[in-house]
Amino acid sequence: MDVLSSRVLVHPRDPDATKAFYRDTLGLAVYREFPGGTVFFLGGGFLEVVGEGRSGPTPDMALWLQVRDLAATVAELRAKGVEPEKGPQREPWGLDEAWISDPDGTRIVLVEIPADHPLRVDVRSQ
């Protein structure tokens, strides 16, 4: 399989509220819009908010968003009325994480990778 692009699809119960959350609250840039959907830039991928869902989120799925400065990101979101479900903390696996949710309850894990974490090691020099 030769994957050329990828997207995460979210089918919200309230499309307008969910689009506004990702666009206005999180500040994600719009890649494209079409009747019934909006695609947002999501770092190296895309998030497509499309159609309408019925069942709501599952605890088995989360969006993992790496940010440059977790404390500043959480402060910015709090100023916009988003209170983290789990505040910033260093996890046992060495990443700094905070959890928020979109209007439908889809968990969003905000992650800052510390400078000394193995994910930042340049393996080309080893």
Rank of each mutant, 00 (worst) to 15 (best):
D2T: 14
V3R: 09
V8K: 02
L9A: 12
V10L: 15
P12C: 11
D16V: 15
A17T: 11
K19M: 13
K19R: 15
Y22P: 03
R23C: 09
L26Q: 05
G27A: 01
L28W: 09
A29V: 10
A29C: 02
V30R: 03
Y31Q: 13
Y31S: 14
R32W: 00
G36S: 03
G36F: 02
G36W: 04
G36A: 08
V39L: 12
V39I: 13
L42R: 05
G44E: 14
G44P: 14
V49S: 08
V50I: 14
G51V: 05
G51C: 07
G51Q: 07
G53S: 09
G56H: 07
P57D: 01
P59I: 08
Q66R: 11
Q66W: 04
R68I: 10
R68Y: 02
L70A: 02
A72F: 05
A72M: 03
A72T: 04
A75Y: 05
A79H: 06
G81A: 10
P84E: 03
E85A: 06
K86E: 14
K86F: 12
W93P: 04
L95R: 03
E97Q: 13
E97N: 07
A98C: 00
W99C: 10
S101Q: 15
S101D: 08
D102R: 04
R107A: 13
V111C: 11
E112W: 03
I113N: 06
I113K: 08
D116V: 04
H117S: 06
H117E: 02
P118R: 12
P118M: 06
L119K: 12
R120W: 00
V121H: 14
V121E: 14
R124M: 10
S125A: 15
